[in-house]
Amino acid sequence: MAALSGGGPRTPSVVVGPLNLAARIDEALAVQALAFGLSDDEIEVRRHIVHRHLLHPGARALGALTESGRLVGFVYGMPNDRSHWWSTVVEPYLRRAGLDGWLDDSFVITELHVHPGFQGQGIGRSLITTITDGVDQPRSILSAIDVESPARGLYRALGYQDLARQVLFPSAPSPYAVMGAPLPLLREK
């Protein structure tokens, strides 16, 4: 488990460690809704998706918890499988770029979210590096909204590079970028 100091005297310290995501799904989706701006209908759809993902072999989740046990961030992912919905959507984009081999032997970061009040404190970095440090795959892939954002900046700092841009997911209002990085992820110097 990784302990992170808060950003100031009123910010509690946070510990990153294993999370029973199925048992804490409501808390996790509340964090995701705040961080990502989800409606109640979108939250309900995501609830079913998360439960389905957790059934996949190798799926794992970590949480960022305050001293009082409040969940303020989470990450989950799994070894990629080309038959998964996400892979079937991104594969043509990666193939066009000659990079569809990234779909093999990769660990997918499915979701990574930190409560807005706790962002900028290294929690997202700790979550993603800790989860990828514990996998057997030699690389990691993820998708992020295709705009310059703190999240994309973090991913780049960790070694992720754009593999495909302007990826359109059905029902998503904005295009995404697919990013990939060799493991282990880069660390701050």
Results as ranks from 00 to 15, higher is better:
P9S: 15
P9T: 14
P9F: 15
R10Q: 04
T11D: 13
T11A: 11
T11I: 13
T11S: 14
S13M: 08
V14C: 03
V14F: 04
G17M: 09
P18R: 15
P18Q: 15
A23C: 06
D26T: 08
E27S: 13
A28C: 15
A28H: 08
L29K: 06
V31C: 07
L34F: 05
L34D: 08
A35I: 03
A35S: 06
F36D: 10
G37A: 03
L38N: 10
L38M: 12
D40I: 01
D41G: 13
R47F: 07
H48I: 03
V50F: 03
H51K: 14
R52W: 15
H53P: 05
P57F: 05
P57H: 06
G58D: 11
A59H: 04
A59P: 03
A59L: 08
R60Y: 02
T66R: 12
R70V: 09
L71G: 02
V72F: 10
F74W: 13
N80V: 09
D81F: 09
D81P: 13
R82W: 03
S83W: 13
W85F: 15
S87A: 09
V90C: 08
V90F: 03
P92E: 14
P92L: 11
P92D: 13
Y93I: 06
R95G: 12
L103I: 06
D104L: 05
D105Y: 01
S106N: 10
F107I: 01
V108R: 12
I109R: 04
L112N: 02
H115R: 14
F118S: 00
F118T: 00
Q119D: 05
G120D: 11
G124T: 04
R125S: 05
R125F: 04
R125D: 07
R125W: 06
S126N: 08
S126C: 08
I128S: 00
I131C: 06
D133Y: 05
G134F: 04
V135H: 00
R139G: 02
S140D: 00
L142V: 02
S143G: 03
